[in-house]
Structure formats: structure tokens, C-alpha cells
Computed example of a mutant assay.
Amino acid sequence: MGGSDGSPGARGAGEFFQRLKAYEGRPTGTVGVGKDPVNLPMIRHWCEAMGDANPAYDGPDAVAPPTMLQAWTMSGLSRHTDRSSAYDELSGLLDDAGYTSVVATDCEQEYLRPLRPGDEITFDAVIESVSERKTTKLGTGHFVTTRMDIRANEEPAGTHRFRILKYAPARRPPKGERPRPVINRDNAGFWAGVADHRLLIQRCGGCGTLRFPWLPGCNGCGSAQWDAVESCGVGTVFSYVVMHHPPFPAFDPPYAVALIELAEGVRIVSNVVGVPCDEVRIGMPVRLEFLRVDGELELPVFAPVQGVAGGVG
């Protein structure tokens, strides 16, 4: 008999797991070729998106940020033509057993040499491991890890491991409280400001650079000294997504999650409220508000500025 989530029953679980394990070591792609060589325009776009102004990533002796390792292997909408069917077969096997949902859990990267403009990228990918059945808060399923070995001009350049959970969703309880933010010594000052209806931004005590989110040290000069300045609360929508699925008990989709560029020059992830989701636009002027979501928790959110070009008339 099968489990209540459609997964194999106890007697069939061992056999099913062995079928999954048979995919370990099977390639998902061999001698893949990066669509473009390492190049300065892509490095520049990456650094602008990440807000990383490290001088090592610019100029005639530039190297690529190490965390771009996987970016040079991505295929875009056209996909790579050297893919094998192994990963799709494994995914279909899990789907048929009731593990129809998927979530990316983590990735690991190992860097063997810097990547420089002009490097030609090739790579191999393999299904490295499939876990035994695990039960998580999301549901019950199997973790699948793929490993990509990346070469630059035929020299080993790094390894990228990517892990997902294919799972059968757990039954959700009725709508409850919003999840609580994790407050620690690095961000306690920010949440103390929220409690006072103030949006505080860290300022480096060494170079004066403003930073958000709050961090224990400065990415620019490395100083651990800092103070905080209060944002004026005015900004624009830099980017956004509208969340429809998966539903979470404490939320009512659809809702807009936006990257807000504050007037001070830093960006914060928050919700856009007070306007239908389909009316949110990049460049929309917004202002800070504080939204009480239950008896104990308030959050900083942003609403359109009425009567301003790009806002709601």
C-alpha cells in the first residue's frame, strides 16, 4: 500500500529508494559549453545587480567574481543541447510517487582558479546523490544533489553543487501568525528601530558607506565599526515579483514583493501595499509605512506615493 501522500508504502520504500539510488553517478550533461566566454559586460551587470564595486572586477586585469561560477554555464531559454535524460527521468519517477513539489535548498561552490575575460567555459554535470526519504516542515521527500565540474580553457576552475528537495506537501494548518524574523546581535538594532517606527540604515565607521541589510562588518573597507542613520522613507520600486504560489498559511496571495531603492541609495526587500498587484511598476515612487500584521508584529512596508508620476493617481 502507498502512503497517505501517494508515496510508496513501507514495504515498497526500500525498493523504490534503490531505484532512486541507481541514478547516482549518471551524467546529466557532458562537455557542456558556455554560451559566451567570460566577458566584462556580464561581469559589470552582475556587479551592478549585487552592488559590488570591488576594483578587482574592473579594468584590464579584471577577474570575474567567484560567485559567478555557475553563471557562465547557464543556457538561457534555449537550453543546452548536450543534456541527458537522466535528471528528467529521476524527476518523473519522484513525481509518479507523489513527490510533485520542488524547492531549491542550498548550493556549494569550490573555486580552483580565477576566471578572466576571454576564458572559454566547459563543464560536466552528474547526479551526485539522492537521499533517503526525509520529513521536513514543507513535507516528505528526497534531496537530490547535482554536481557540476567547471573548466576554463580546459583547466579545472571550480565545482558547483546544487541541491533540491522533491517532496509531497504537508497538509497545512489554518491560517496562523506570520513567521517571526530571526533577531540576533547583528540585526537587533534594525528591529529596535522598526519598533519605534524608524527605518535605520547602517553606516560604516571606517569609510562612511551606507549598507543594508545590516552586517557585522563593511564589505568595502572591512571595518567592524558602525553607527545608524534613519531613512527618510522615500524610494522607488527597483524590481518586484508577484507571489501566487505556493500558498503559505499566514499569507493571502497574490501579493507583491519588491526590491525598494531608498533615497539614501541602499535597497530593501519589502511588500508593496495599498495598490493591486498588477498595478505595481518598476520606477513607481513609494513611501514607508509600518503594517501591524498581528498583535505583536509590525513590519516596514511601502505604499505608492499618490499623485506622483509613476504612482497611483
Rank of each mutant, 00 (worst) to 15 (best):
V286N: 00
V273M: 13
E279G: 07
A258K: 01
V272A: 04
V272K: 02
W226C: 05
P276Q: 10
A263I: 10
D252Q: 14
P246M: 07
G220L: 03
G222M: 08
F248P: 02
V280R: 05
V275H: 08
E230D: 02
M243T: 12
Y255W: 04
D227F: 05
E279F: 09
V280F: 08
V237W: 00
E289I: 01
C221A: 13
I268V: 15
E289F: 02
G222Y: 09
D278N: 15
P276D: 13
P247M: 03
N271M: 07
H244K: 01
P254D: 11
V242Q: 13
G220R: 03
C232T: 12
C232S: 04
E279I: 10
S231V: 04
Q225A: 15
Y240M: 13
L288P: 00
A250T: 06
A250H: 07
A228R: 02
V257W: 05
G265F: 13
F251T: 04
R287W: 00
R267Q: 09
C221V: 10
P254F: 07
D278F: 13
A250E: 12
V280W: 07
R267N: 06
V266C: 03
N219T: 13
E289H: 02
G233L: 00
W226D: 01
I260D: 01
S270V: 09
M284D: 01
G283C: 05
C221P: 09
D227I: 10
M243A: 10
C277W: 02
S239K: 10
D278A: 11
M243P: 13
G222A: 10
